Simulated assay, not measured.
Amino acid sequence: MQRTDFYFYLPPHLIAQQPNRSRTSSRLLWANSILEPFQDLRFTDLPHLLMPGDLLVFNDTRVIPARLLGRKQSGGKIEILVERILDNNQILAQIRASQPPKPGMWLYLEGGIAIQVLQRIEHFFQLQFDDPRSVDEILHTIGQIPLPPYIRRTPTEVDSIRYQTVYARQPGAVAAPTAGLHFDEGILEQLQTKGIAMAFITLHVGAGTFAPIRVDNIHQHTMHTEYMQVSPQVCEQIQTTRARGGRVIAVGTTCVRALETASAGGNIKPYAGETRLFITPGYRFQSVDALLTNFHLPESTLLMLVCAFAGQDLVLAAYRHAVEQEYRFFSYGDAMLVSHNPNE
């Protein structure tokens, strides 16, 4: 399949630059079938679309303040985006600079913190802090919330709260699992009261989630790796839900990747480690029946996953509808609910 098969026109003004006034005030597009009219709803309608006995699966990763600003020895400005904390004083990171730094060079961050380039590993740099404090302490002292590149403004205190799910508890992501940003404590309580169960996996979203596909044939694309964990308890919840006829509903594409990675053998099993699963049309899903997701970038790996899940024709038609109806797109945008189409 070609990358251009997943193109759609998106007017720039539909890219949400700010969060809504409240988490649940976003819109919800219910794209149940290409044979039925799409339903333009509010996110607060979600409990009415779910049934007692359904299971919602959330990603409980927590975004770390992974954006660091500084200068090279020459004085040139740099921006460091932490991809992963390796130990107490080393990180793997992307570096934006006029010229990429070389191994052995020193970089200087706010507050006089020095950091040395150890080596380059593909698109990333291994860096070591010359500071008695831990990486985690340094990030929480001078780091900023790493807003996505299409949000063209400086992060604020509001972002430190709103670019984080209310159930985030496992630090390690550099991007939010954005389908979960719509939930607040009130709607979670409504869902529980209705008899809808909840489960939590962890997938630490990396900066690679924003990396564009640069090849025409999507099957030649090399997927980025991300750390994930699916517990024995979650596996048991999924098996029990399906045995009694309930649906497993993934909140976001990160949950789909985690659950399907853990289901690689056909049955879901506990898993802790890396995933680079790239889901494209033709993939056979094992553990997910419905998906709540935000609207994704044209020609992105996330859009390809949604097309594989619900059907390419339905998803692209839903996106055209969303553009016509001026839904808000991307991280701070609106949401869509789709069911799995096993014929895709």
Results as ranks from 00 to 15, higher is better:
residue 143 G to I: 01
residue 281 P to D: 00
residue 190 Q to K: 12
residue 333 G to R: 07
residue 217 N to S: 11
residue 253 T to R: 15
residue 10 L to G: 10
residue 328 R to N: 07
residue 10 L to D: 14
residue 38 F to C: 08
residue 241 T to S: 06
residue 240 T to P: 07
residue 110 E to I: 11
residue 188 L to D: 01
residue 78 I to K: 01
residue 104 G to H: 04
residue 330 F to H: 10
residue 46 L to K: 01
residue 332 Y to E: 15
residue 50 L to R: 00
residue 331 S to Q: 10
residue 212 P to K: 06
residue 21 R to E: 15
residue 45 D to K: 00
residue 237 Q to N: 11
residue 107 L to P: 04
residue 314 L to P: 07
residue 129 F to W: 01
residue 248 V to A: 09
residue 109 L to T: 00
residue 117 V to F: 00
residue 73 Q to P: 00
residue 333 G to H: 09
residue 4 T to V: 11
residue 101 P to M: 01
residue 163 Y to F: 11
residue 17 Q to A: 13
residue 104 G to Y: 02
residue 258 A to W: 04
residue 20 N to I: 09
residue 109 L to C: 03
residue 249 I to R: 13
residue 165 T to K: 02
residue 340 H to M: 08
residue 16 A to T: 12
residue 62 R to V: 06
residue 235 C to A: 11
residue 101 P to V: 00
residue 293 T to H: 09
residue 330 F to W: 09
residue 121 I to V: 03
residue 202 T to P: 15
residue 135 V to I: 05
residue 298 P to M: 03
residue 195 G to V: 04
residue 241 T to W: 09
residue 250 A to V: 14
residue 312 Q to Y: 11
residue 40 D to R: 09
residue 212 P to M: 10
residue 25 S to W: 13
residue 86 L to S: 08
residue 60 D to M: 14
residue 298 P to N: 07
residue 36 E to R: 04
residue 54 D to C: 05
residue 164 Q to N: 08
residue 45 D to L: 02
residue 162 R to Y: 14
residue 330 F to S: 06
residue 210 F to E: 07
residue 173 A to S: 15
residue 324 E to P: 03
residue 101 P to D: 02
residue 178 T to P: 08
residue 230 V to C: 15
